[in-house]
């Protein structure tokens, strides 16, 4: 059986188109089932377990301070509980705001209290590499693996944190880049401390360059005697996952109270479909990519052939 030279083309085209449409229709289906993997955003107000708590938890019965007045405490919330990373995501800003209960400061400008807001991203393992010159070429010669490094870390305060409290206090609550928790993988424990410190500095420097680590020394402002707010910017490249915001209330270098909130940062829309598709069903994703490529090539060749007539 011989077909005219041109007759196979529409058939092939139709078949491709049909398969392409089928593949397209599959995406939402596939990602809907994958949606289950995403846990519902956790409760928004919580204290972080496992971290040392210095200030006494708010007792059920209010206890008067030694001076016969109610002790101060801080309460805070975030402008948004969940941030959607969509295909048009170019970064966003979240507002952390709160009040000082039983505030004793006379005015917003008095500087009576110090507030520090820390926003922590999900800890993730990373590899830091250092280049060295080997036979004239600059190549990655050494590397170290950190099991847990916050993927995002922003700090905002009413004034530079060094003025707010002693380094030991800051370190205890992991406030400031120097106190960011980075645990090296066990097999690298024998590394010289100064070398380790260099890697740490490099990680912080690189994360700062990507705006994933940020510091705003006057990023928290009191609006009234007790109300304060802070704008935290999330860059376009912010890794998805839950963010935890910690709000600390200091007075004369002592922590009076603290409060934690969480913000869910997750992929949404097309961005989420494609990402799930690529990671949950890689083989179909690969085949889909090839279909798109073949279809693009065929459409282009027919379009431009017609244009040439």
């Amino acid at each position: 059986m011989t077909l005219p030279a041109n007759s196979w083309r529409p058939v092939l085209f139709g078949a491709l188109l049909g398969l392409g449409v089928m593949a397209l229709a599959l995406i939402p289906l596939l990602s809907r089932s994958a949606q289950v993997a995403y846990a519902a955003p956790p409760a928004t107000q919580q204290t972080v377990p496992g971290q040392p708590v210095a200030a006494p938890q708010q007792p059920a019965q209010p206890v008067l301070g030694p001076d016969g007045r109610m002790p101060e405490s801080v309460e805070a919330d975030v402008s948004t509980r969940s941030v959607a990373v969509t295909s048009s995501f170019t970064g966003t800003e979240i507002i952390v705001f709160g009040t000082v209960e039983h505030s004793r400061q006379p005015t917003a400008e008095s500087g009576y209290y110090d507030v520090v807001v820390v926003v922590d991203g999900t800890p993730s393992p990373i590899v830091a590499r250092r280049k060295a010159n080997v036979a004239g070429l600059w190549i990655n010669a050494n590397s170290i693996r950190f099991d847990k490094v916050p993927s995002y870390y922003a700090i905002a305060s009413t004034r530079p944190i060094e003025e707010i409290a002693d380094p030991q206090v800051l370190d205890k609550y992991r406030i400031g880049f120097q106190s960011v928790h980075m645990s090296a993988a066990p097999q690298q424990a024998q590394l010289a401390p100064e070398e380790m410190a260099e890697y740490r500095q490099a990680v912080i420097r690189l994360k700062e360059k990507d705006q994933l680590y940020q510091k705003k020394e006057t990023g928290v402002a009191f609006i009234g005697r007790s109300l304060f707010r802070s704008a935290i910017s999330l860059p376009a490249n912010v890794p998805v996952g839950p963010l935890v915001t910690h709000t600390y209330l200091f007075k004369d270098g002592k922590l009076l109270s603290r409060h934690s909130n969480s913000v869910m940062l997750q992929r949404e829309g097309l961005e989420r479909y494609l990402h799930n598709f690529a990671f949950e069903y890689p083989i179909f994703y690969g085949i889909f990519a090839v279909f798109i490529a073949v279809a693009a090539g065929l459409i282009a060749s027919t379009l431009f052939k017609r244009g040439a007539h």
Binding site: V127, A128, R129, R130, K131, L137, I139, L206, K207
Partner: peptide
């Protein structure tokens, strides 16, 4: 790019395989 001393000797990347 291979022979000129880089301005930043360090780089960071995710750990592969543990996505």
């Amino acid at each position: 790019g291979l022979v000129v001393p880089p301005s930043e000797l360090y780089s960071i990347g995710g750990v592969l395989g543990g996505h």
